[in-house]
Design a protein around this nucleic acid. Structure first.
Lengths: 209, 209
DNA sequence: GGAAAAATACCCATTGAGGGGTATTCTTGA
DNA sequence: TCAAGAATACCCCTCAATGGGTATTTTTCC
């Protein structure tokens, strides 16, 4: 018997999976959580074989929750279940230790395939995710992160709506230095035009990077 | 017998509803669509009594689709089914003519209650939506929309990353006119500083306003 | 220890976005 | 029909954000 837990903040979807699993002889749903904290409590009480993990969740998100769980219970198989097929979301979940990645706009039956695959020790990725090329990208980007430490820090502040001079004050550096970092980032990221860096920084926030 | 169609771009959720409805004697699912265009095709072939309508959909979104459908088939009951409980999303769907509004983080059983309520000629709103106060707000804002037509149009283009001169080209107006509209919007919205309007426009995209 | 990469800081320049006006024409609703 | 609000278009001015350089000091890593 395979025991499964669901971490998903949309209860309607969680209920749908519940209905699906009810008619499977070899799978039992042991509980569901609507946020990362509740999930951790749940696991402490009843350790499941498999967790279906949403990325976007209140309190503790799926990426952090996966890291915590794999650290303490490395034998639990975690399958990411997300709306996002962006490279960054997938690589971060891979890095956190998931054994599979499903998309919410795929058929629900995929869930069954994925659960059975991961308890068999295999991995299971949605067909629309090119897992091989992602792994390669991940390796490269580990060695050469596109943006440097200072640059990422400044980008974050830009995303918070800070201006160049405000950022210079915060970081105790000259305005010209911040300007230089901005220009370097624009070059590295292949952007152009005035608002592009702000746009990039803002979109970042919704893109898991 | 109640006939139902689903418009939902996350197939997993749509599959879940399918499972739920399968065991209801008085309800038949006649089809599901993953975008607004497919939905319209579907309705032309088999007219359902009720449509469960997601707001976020490719091609034609739920708001536009609802308007189109209520115009041509006013007897079809439409229930919005969304992740968002923001005022703006709800009021826009109300305005478009929905008879109910469900949230995805509510139990799936709510779907059954809602379907049965709307075929009875009643309305059905998720408990966490304060429908009375929303209706009042909607009345007021109908008389005085904050931004005018041109302003909203320009804001949308700003959100798409267009610069003032590009927007002027697109709209066949002078650059100075677009600048004037920008300034008026900044004043109306109580913004300040250089990137604020872009920031506002970008955040809007995730907030349905 | 020494080279490469990152961080620092400055120079020059252009331009887009805003702040604050005024004025004319077009629409729209009471 | 007539006034209010919207849309159009121009004026002035400032300043932050780029684009494109150079140079020095730290860090980091082989």
């Amino acid at each position: 018997m395979i025991t499964v837990a669901i971490a998903e903040d949309h209860q309607s979807l969680s209920d749908g999976i519940h209905l699906l699993l009810e008619y499977e002889e070899d799978i039992t749903l042991i509980g569901h959580a609507t946020d990362g904290e509740v999930l951790l409590d749940l696991i402490r009480k009843k350790t499941p074989d498999v967790i279906l993990m949403d990325i976007k969740m209140p309190k503790i998100d799926g990426i952090v929750a996966t890291r915590l769980i794999k650290k303490e219970w490395p034998h639990i198989h975690i399958i990411a279940f997300s709306m996002f097929d962006q490279t960054s979301a997938v690589t971060q979940m891979l890095d956190a230790g998931v054994s599979g990645y499903l998309l919410k706009n795929s058929p629900l039956e995929e869930v069954l395939n994925a659960i059975r695959a991961v308890v068999d020790g295999k991995e299971y990725f949605d067909a629309s995710i090119n897992i091989a090329s992602l792994r390669q990208d991940a390796e490269q980007s580990q060695k050469k992160p596109l943006l440097s430490k200072s640059e990422r820090e400044i980008l974050k502040l830009i995303g918070q709506g800070k201006t160049t001079s405000e950022i210079a004050d915060i970081r105790f550096t000259a305005v010209s230095t911040v300007e230089k970092h901005r220009k370097n980032m624009i070059r590295k990221l292949g952007l152009s035009g005035k608002g592009e860096l702000l746009r990039y920084a803002l979109e970042r926030k919704y893109n898991f990077e």
